[in-house]
Write a protein that binds this DNA or RNA. Structure first.
Lengths: 232, 232
DNA sequence: AAGTGGTCTAGACCACGTC
DNA sequence: ACGTGGTCTAGACCACTTT
C-alpha cells in the first residue's frame, strides 16, 4: 500500500469533501465511479460507497445508477431536528414540568381541519391544554384525536396525563409531518400563554399517522422566546 | 435457507420496527446482539448492522459498544430539514425571484451580536435586503459578514447579487447552525415586508463557519404565512 | 447492451466501554 | 479482560437507467 491510502471511510469522505470545497470537482460535474476511486484511494469499493452514500444523504452529492455520481448543483444542506416529548424537553432545561387541562370534548369537525384529517365525518376528540415550565406557560396545545383510528381513547381522561404522553405510550405510529410557522396570538392563545394579544408566537403543526390513517393533529403555540435549534 | 430468511437490510429493518411497535422489545430493553440476530434472520451480520444503524440514526435505538443495543427510552423522532438557497426556494414555488438591496455598510459590532460572532472587534460588513416572490415581499435579510475571515468580500457590491448567493458560490464553509423562532415585527421589518407593525413573523437565525471561524450571521424574517415543512 | 450504484456475504480485525 | 458494535476486504450478483 502506498502512503496516500485511505483505510477508513471517514478519510475518504474527508478527501472528497476537500475536493468539493476546493472545486476540484465542480457543482454539476460527474465524479469518478466507485471502482476507480477505490483504486485511487487504495481501499475497497464498499468503503468508498459508504463515504459517498453519506455525502449524498447530506445533500452534497447526487447519485444515480448508471448515470454516476454528480456534485449537487444547488448546495442544499440537510439538518436534522430532534422531536422530543414536551415533558422531556422542559425537564431537560432544568425546569419543573406541569400540565393543565383546559377542555376535553367530543366535537364536530372544523372546516379548516377537514383537509388535515383527511376524513369525512369522523368521531373527533378535542383537547386543549397548557404545559408549564416552572409555573410559567411554555406551550398551548390544541389537539384533535381521530377516534375512528384510536378507539382506545374513548373514556380516557386527560386531566392528569397529557394526550401527547398517552398517545406516545399507547398508540404506535408509523410516520407524521411537521410544519413550523409564526402567528400573532389570538385571544385564547394569548390568555393561555399569558402574553399580550397579537404577540408573535412560534407554531408547530404536527400530524401523526399509522397504517389506518391519521391518528392525531395538534397545534402547539409556544410562549415568546421559544427557539428550535440545530446544527448542520 | 428457511422460509423466514431476510435477505435485504430493509426487510430486517421492517421486522425490527414491527417488534418495536408491537412492544416485543420494550423501551429501555436490550435487544439481541448483531451476531445472534444475523443467525435468526439468516443473513450476514453486516446486513443486520446496516438495519440497526439506520434505526439508531432515526433515534429509535441506542447503540453502544460492549453495552449492546437498547430500545430508546424516550421516543425521540428525528426529522431532516432541507436548507435551500432562497432563490431556489422561491423559484420552486413557481414565482419569479427578485432581490433588492436596502443597505450595505461597514459597521461596528452591536453588543448582542458579539456573542454570536464570537470575536472581539472584527471588521464587519452589514447588509440589509429584501427577497421578493412575484413582487410580494418574501423575506427580509439582515446579515453580518466577518471580513476578517472573508477578506474577499471587500469591494464586493451586493446591489445585484444577494450576499447569500455570493457567499455560497465563493466561500466554502464547513458547518453552521440554525435557530427557528417567532417575533413581533419591528418597524423596519414590517416596512420591508409591508405588513402591519407587530405582526407575528417567522424568524430564521443562521450562522455559518469554516476552519477560520464564523463567516457570517444572518437573520431572515419571513412574510406572514411562511412555513417550514418536513416529514418523519 | 452495458455501465453504474446498491447490496449481500463470510471472514477478519479493531476500538471502545463496561464489567 | 472481554464482549459488543464499528469497520474493512474481496468478490459477487443485482437493479436500474441510460445509451
Amino acid at each position: 500500500m502506498s502512503k496516500g491510502d485511505f483505510n477508513r471511510w471517514q478519510d475518504v469522505q474527508a478527501e472528497v469533501l476537500s475536493r468539493l470545497n476546493n472545486r476540484v470537482w465542480k457543482p454539476g460535474e460527474l465524479i469518478p465511479n466507485e471502482a476507480d476511486l477505490a483504486t485511487e484511494f487504495g481501499c475497497a469499493r464498499a468503503t468508498v460507497n459508504r463515504a459517498l452514500r453519506n455525502l449524498a444523504e447530506s445533500g452534497l452529492l447526487d447519485r444515480r445508477r448508471r448515470a454516476g455520481t454528480r456534485v449537487a448543483t444547488h448546495p442544499v444542506r440537510r439538518a436534522t431536528l430532534d422531536i422530543a416529548v414536551l415533558r422531556d424537553e422542559i425537564e431537560a432545561t432544568g425546569a419543573a414540568y406541569r400540565y393543565q387541562l383546559i377542555r376535553q370534548e367530543k366535537a364536530t369537525l372544523p372546516a379548516d381541519l377537514a383537509r388535515l384529517m383527511k376524513t369525512e365525518a369522523p368521531a373527533l376528540l378535542h383537547v386543549e391544554a397548557v404545559h408549564y415550565a416552572d409555573d410559567s406557560a411554555y406551550v398551548f396545545e390544541d389537539r384533535w384525536i381521530n377516534e375512528a383510528n384510536v378507539p382506545a381513547v374513548q373514556g380516557v381522561d386527560f386531566s392528569d396525563r397529557s394526550p401527547n404522553q398517552w398517545l406516545v405510550e399507547t398508540i404506535p405510529f408509523t410516520g407524521g409531518d411537521i410544519a413550523f410557522s409564526a402567528r400573532s396570538a389570538d385571544k385564547a392563545t394569548a390568555a393561555a400563554l399569558r402574553c399580550a394579544n397579537g404577540t408573535g408566537v412560534f407554531i408547530i403543526d404536527r400530524r401523526t399517522w399509522n397504517d389506518l390513517g391519521i391518528i392525531t393533529a395538534v397545534r402547539l403555540s409556544f410562549a415568546p422566546g421559544y427557539q428550535v435549534r440545530t446544527e448542520f
